[in-house]
Nucleic acid binder design. Structure first.
Length: 463
RNA sequence: UGCUCGGUAGCUCAGUGGCAGAGCAGGUGACUGUUAAUCACUUGGUCGUUGGUUCGACCCCAACCCGAGCAGCCA
C-alpha cells in the first residue's frame, strides 16, 4: 500500500510531488464550475489541505459531490503549488475515495461552537480546530515535563494509584473495593468487614504520590512522578476536576529555597518549550481564546517570579486598603480573591508565597525555627491561581511525630513513612504541579474541562 | 455544597399574558479558483420537566432536572 503523507508534511513541502496519498476528515467542500474544493484535516496540524477534485473524475457526481463535512476520505494525487491565495500547496486529485461518510446530522459545523456544546460531544470535539490544538499542545507539554526532569537526572517513579492511606489531608477519596455494595460482609459489631475486601483493608484512589515519592527520593536522590490523581470533592469550578494529572518532583538534600528554584525553572521551561514547538497551535488560542496570551507567556518567561513570605503577603493584603469579601488576618488561609490580587494586580506576575502558619498546613511540612510557620510554598499565577503547592518535608523524627499527634493521625499507619526519618534521614523537598492548570495557563483555555480529553467532574463520567 | 445567571429549531440567540422568530446548518436551484464562498427559494418547534395561577402561560409562581459563573476544598 502506498505510504500516506500527513497534511502537516504536505503543507511543509519544498517542491511539488507527482504522487502523494493523503488521508483525513473533510472540514468543508465547495463546488467550482468544473471541479470541487475539498479541505481535509488529519489532526497532524491546525491547517487543512486543499484538494482539487476535477469533474472529470469517474466518481465525481456519485461520490465526490456527495462528500459532506465530517466524512473520512483518502485522496491520491499530485502535490502542486496552489493557483489560489490562502495556501501555498494543494493536491490535484487523481483518485478520491470516500472511506467513511458523514450524514447531515454530523454535529460539527463550519462555524464556531460554544465550549459547552462541544463538551457534550467529547467524542467528536477533537475534530474541532481548537481542540485539536489543545490536545496537540497537551501531548507536547507532557513530553516537555519528562524532558525537563530527565535532562536534570531525575528518576521517574511510578507511584501506586491504589493506596491505603486515607488521611493525608488532601480531601475526599474514592473508595476502591470489590465488595458487593448491596450485601457487604460484616464484622461482629456490624461494621463492614474490609478484611474480606480485595486488598484485605480499605483502599482508595490516590490523591498524591508524594509520600511514596519521598521514599524514592531518599534512595535515588532526585525523582518525579507524573500520573493521574483523584479527588472526590464536590467541586464545581472551572479549575477543579475529579481526575487530573499531577507532576510531583521530590529532591533529597534540598531545602525550601532549592524547591522554589526548581518550581520556577520548571514552569518557565514548560512555557518556553510550548512557545518553541507549538507556535501554530498557540496562535489560534491567541486569536480566538485569549488575545493577550502570547504577550503574557513571554512576559512570564522574562521576569523572575516574585517571592514573598506568607507574613509579607498578608501585610500587602492588609495594607491594600481594599474591601474584601472575606476579611483575613494572620493565621488564616488566603482566599482566592487575595491570591488573585497578589498575582494579577499587586505583582502582575507569578508569585511564590512561602512559610505559611503551621495550623493551616498538613503534618509533613517542616516546622520553621519560629515554631509558628512551616516551609510550605505555593506558586500563584495570574488567571488561574494556585498552580504549584509544595514544601520542604519534616525530616526530624521527633518533630514529625509531634506534628502527627497534633493532626490526630495514627502513627502505626505511617510506620514506613516514619522509618525514612529513622534511617539516614535528610532534608528533602518537593511540590505538585497541576498538569491541566499548567495547560490552561499555556493555552489560555478558561475551563479545566476543556483541556482534558474526557473530563471527570461531579455527576459527569460519560464517554 | 452555597450564591448568582441561564435552558426557545441541529447550532448561536431574539421574543411577548393572546397564531413561535432570526442568522447559521440541512434541502432545492443558480453562480463561481473557492477558502466560515455568494444569491434565491425552502424543510425544521412537546419553548428543560412536573404541578399551580389565569378565559388563555414560552411568558407569572413553586418544586425538580440540566448547564455555566463565582465561592469553599485544592493542583
Amino acid at each position: 500500500m502506498f505510504k500516506a503523507t500527513s497534511v502537516k508534511a504536505a503543507l511543509g513541502a519544498t517542491e511539488s510531488t507527482d504522487t502523494i496519498l493523503v488521508n483525513g476528515w473533510v472540514r468543508t467542500r465547495r463546488d467550482a464550475k468544473a471541479f470541487s474544493f475539498i479541505e481535509i484535516n488529519d489532526g497532524s496540524c491546525l491547517k487543512n489541505l486543499q484538494v482539487i477534485a476535477d469533474a472529470e473524475l469517474p466518481n465525481y457526481v456519485d461520490t465526490v459531490q456527495q462528500i459532506t463535512t465530517g466524512a473520512a476520505v483518502s485522496v491520491k494525487g499530485e502535490l502542486v503549488a496552489s493557483k489560489g491565495g490562502g495556501q501555498s500547496w494543494e493536491v490535484k486529485a487523481t483518485e478520491v475515495t470516500l472511506v467513511g461518510a458523514a450524514d447531515a446530522s454530523y454535529p460539527l459545523q463550519k462555524k464556531g461552537h460554544s465550549m459547552e456544546f462541544l463538551r457534550e460531544i467529547a467524542h467528536l470535539r477533537p475534530r474541532a480546530n481548537l481542540f485539536g490544538a489543545v490536545f496537540r499542545v497537551r501531548s507536547r507539554l507532557s513530553f516537555a515535563v519528562h524532558q525537563f526532569y530527565q535532562d536534570r537526572g531525575f528518576v521517574h517513579v511510578h507511584t501506586p494509584i491504589v493506596t491505603a492511606s486515607d488521611c493525608e489531608g488532601a480531601g475526599e477519596l474514592f473508595r476502591v473495593s470489590t465488595l458487593d455494595p448491596a450485601n457487604p460482609p460484616k464484622t461482629e459489631d456490624g461494621a463492614i468487614d474490609y478484611g474480606q475486601d480485595f486488598f484485605a483493608r480499605p483502599t482508595y484512589l490516590t490523591v498524591s504520590g508524594q509520600l511514596e515519592a519521598e521514599v524514592f527520593a531518599c534512595a535515588l536522590g532526585n525523582v518525579y512522578t507524573f500520573g493521574p490523581t483523584f479527588r472526590a470533592e464536590n467541586s464545581n469550578t472551572s479549575r477543579h476536576a475529579s481526575e487530573f494529572w499531577m507532576i510531583e518532583p521530590e529532591m533529597a538534600f534540598t531545602d525550601l529555597q532549592g524547591n522554589m528554584d526548581l518550581a520556577e525553572e520548571f514552569v518557565k521551561y514548560l512555557i518556553a518549550d510550548v512557545l518553541e514547538h507549538c507556535a501554530d497551535d498557540l496562535a489560534i488560542f491567541g486569536k480566538f481564546v485569549d488575545k493577550g496570551l502570547l504577550e503574557r507567556l513571554k512576559f512570564v518567561l522574562e521576569r523572575p517570579f516574585q517571592r514573598v513570605s506568607y507574613t509579607e503577603a498578608m501585610d500587602i493584603i492588609l495594607a491594600s486598603g481594599r474591601e474584601w469579601e472575606t476579611s483575613v488576618k494572620w493565621g488564616e488561609n488566603l482566599q482566592s480573591e487575595h491570591e488573585r490580587f497578589l498575582a494579577e494586580e499587586h505583582f502582575k506576575c507569578p508569585v511564590t508565597v512561602y512559610n505559611y502558619p503551621k495550623e493551616i498546613k498538613p503534618f509533613y511540612m517542616r516546622l520553621n525555627d519560629d515554631d509558628k510557620t512551616v516551609t510550605a510554598m505555593d506558586v500563584l499565577v495570574p488567571g488561574i491561581g494556585e498552580i504549584v503547592g509544595g514544601s520542604q518535608r519534616e525530616e526530624r523524627l521527633d518533630v514529625l511525630e509531634a506534628n502527627m499527634d497534633r493532626h490526630g493521625l495514627n502513627k502505626e499507619e505511617y510506620k514506613w513513612y516514619l522509618d525514612l526519618r529513622r534511617y539516614g534521614s535528610v532534608p528533602h523537598s518537593g511540590f505538585g504541579l497541576g498538569f491541566e492548570r499548567m495547560l490552561m495557563f499555556v493555552t489560555g483555555m478558561a475551563n479545566i474541562r476543556d483541556v482534558i480529553p474526557f473530563a471527570r467532574t461531579p455527576g459527569n463520567a460519560e464517554f
